[in-house]
Amino acid sequence: MKEIMTAKNVKLSYGNFEALHGIDLDFPEKRLTALIGPSGCGKSTFLRCLNRMNDDITGVKISGDIRFNGKDIYSPKMDLVALRKHVGMVFQQPTPFPFSVYDNVAYGLRIAGVKDKKLIEQRVEESLKQAAIWDETKDNLKRNAQAFSGGQQQRICIARTLAIRPEVVLLDEPTSALDPISSMEIEKTLMSLKHKYTFIMVTHNLQQASRVADQVAFLMNGNLIETGPTEKMFISPKNKVTSNYLNGRFG
């Protein structure tokens, strides 16, 4: 299977504090990888390295090698806008812009210079359908996206990310601000999309990881402790500490 993103010896420090101590982790294409670990273990920091979201933090130093489709994303030649077009992101809190559903989903396409109204219309519909929010928005496309429920807003945000046809979608605890029913809707959405896109998801919800992920990576104190297929991680992980974490002994 093709590895769409690869990370080798990724280290990150904020000033004198080293938050990631050298992470090696590869991401197979069109699979969902869950990053799990106790709070402060570095999983979100690592996730944000994958589309260079940490670049602007003052005092941050990142080393190692992260490649997207074989290209070094930290190379000076890398076009950041192009990278983020291919590697999209969905955040913990739904972040719809304060305008209509339609304009939210069309936003990225317009920024990318797409002028063809028909194409935009088509993409908006397709993306809302993919994010499983079409039925709930098709009659209200002009309504302000912020007027929808949290779960619906998050699916609108997923649709907005999908509209520019990324190859990889980074999800930073996408359901932690949502109620269980909305979370389930998002999980269903991810399950139906994971054969089309590569997802890399940080989650604190271990059962969610076991339900939707194909691969799980367990991080602790800035180190990758163990990674493997989800069944293997949840039934027979190599490390005792992985089993202890999965059973909620700490974290």
């Binding site: 271990l206 059962q207 076991s210 039934i235 992980p237 005792k240 089993s243 999965l246 059973n247």
Partner: peptide, 9 residues
């Protein structure tokens, strides 16, 4: 308790 991994086994 929904045990997993070692506890599950």
């Amino acid at each position: 308790q929904q045990p997993v991994a070692t506890d599950f086994r």
